[in-house]
Computed example of a mutant assay.
Amino acid sequence: MSVRDLPDRLPEIDYTKYTNRQLAAIPLAVLGVSLLILVGWSLFVTGQPASPGSPVDLGIAFTGGTEVQIVATDSPSAIESNLGFQVDSVQPVRGSDRYIVTTQSTNTEQIQSAISSAGYEQISMSETAASFGADSVQLALMGIAVAFVGMSLVIFILFRTFVPSIAVVISAFSDIVIPIALMNVFGIKLSLGTVAALLMLIGYSVDSDVLLNNHILRRRGGFYESTYRAMRTGVTMTLTSISAMAVMTIAAYLMGIPLLPEIGIVLVFGLSADLMNTYMLNLSLLRWYKYEGVKQ
């Protein structure tokens, strides 16, 4: 079976069985739960009700911290328990007896003393200043915000009508919020790599949503005919990307490559959410606009 054969084998969903409210209910419910997770995380996990913190746990690139490479024969869990400081992660270096230990502590003397007391050999140590981390948070958030606002402006210029444009923007917003909430659930911290994954998700989301909008609003054929035509391309494209990211995540994890597993799993979260948001939430808004929102 070739890739060319895949689109024709996708099952056609009978959207006529579901109202617009039914189609939008699940994506909006998932978005609502995700927003509650982010708010709760900001208030009660990384901050206090009087002084909210970050909606997601930050890695050392944003908080400041220390990365140490050591030689050890123990397991990662044993290394973490043997060291006398708070450890964020212990990652093995593939094909060697070395481990990369990260911590938010910047007390290098205490870290070196704990490593020596545990009987491990220190190979290297690098420190990220807290001030640099704070600047990185602002730059990362600014980058995501600028990318999202720029995407929104382009979408409104492209379609020049409110409902189709806002449908794309809401879907893209949900595609970002859901993975961030899942990052909290699965203990994935915000790093420069995961920020890059979130930026990529904006592009993936817009691609699939614009494809659907163009087929329905600008090409010949009935509403459902245009929908299925767009799905043959869009769903295949997204499923292929999910499969590729899943394979990359597993391979990078088994080979001990840092950052790539986190990038891959965030993309899998976002692309899976994109399937739901595009072909349920976005589609319901387009159908309402096509049959009820536009005066015939």
Rank of each mutant, 00 (worst) to 15 (best):
I60D: 07
F62R: 10
G65Y: 03
G65L: 06
E67W: 03
E67M: 15
E67Y: 06
Q69M: 12
V71M: 10
V71N: 13
A72F: 09
A72P: 14
A72S: 15
D74F: 05
D74P: 03
D74L: 14
A78N: 12
I79A: 14
I79C: 15
S81Q: 15
L83F: 01
L83G: 07
L83E: 06
F85C: 14
F85M: 12
Q86H: 10
V87F: 09
D88I: 09
D88V: 13
D88C: 01
Q91S: 13
Q91W: 04
P92W: 03
P92K: 00
V93M: 07
R94S: 15
D97F: 09
D97C: 05
R98G: 01
R98D: 04
I100S: 12
T103E: 03
Q104S: 09
S105Y: 00
S105P: 03
T106R: 03
N107S: 13
T108N: 14
T108E: 15
E109I: 11
I111N: 06
I111Y: 02
I111L: 11
S113E: 14
S113C: 07
A114K: 02
I115D: 00
I115T: 09
S116W: 01
S116Y: 07
S117Y: 09
S117G: 10
S117R: 14
A118L: 03
G119L: 10
Q122I: 14
Q122D: 09
I123C: 05
M125A: 11
M125L: 14
S126P: 11
S126M: 14
S126Y: 11
E127F: 06
E127N: 10
E127A: 08
T128I: 15
A129R: 13
A130R: 09
A130Q: 14
A134I: 06
S136E: 05
V137S: 14
Q138L: 10
Q138D: 12
A140N: 12
A140W: 04
L141M: 10
G143Q: 08
I144S: 03
I144P: 04
V146E: 04
V146L: 14
A147E: 07
A147F: 05
A147T: 12
F148G: 13
F148P: 08
F148N: 08
F148Y: 13
V149I: 15
G150V: 02
S152W: 05
L153Y: 08
V154C: 00
I155N: 00
F156Q: 02
F156S: 01
I157C: 11
L158D: 00
F159Q: 10
F159Y: 15
R160S: 12
R160C: 08
F162H: 04
V163E: 02
V163D: 05
V163T: 13
S165N: 08
I166Y: 12
I166S: 12
I166Q: 07
A167D: 07
V169L: 12
V169M: 07
I170V: 15
I170S: 06
I170R: 01
S174G: 14
S174C: 05
S174A: 15
D175N: 13
D175K: 01
I176N: 05
V177N: 07
V177T: 13
V177Y: 02
I178D: 07
P179A: 01
P179M: 02
A181D: 00
M183F: 03
N184H: 05
G187Y: 02
I188G: 08
I188T: 12
I188P: 01
L192Y: 04
L192S: 13
L192P: 06
G193V: 05
G193P: 02
T194G: 10
V195S: 06
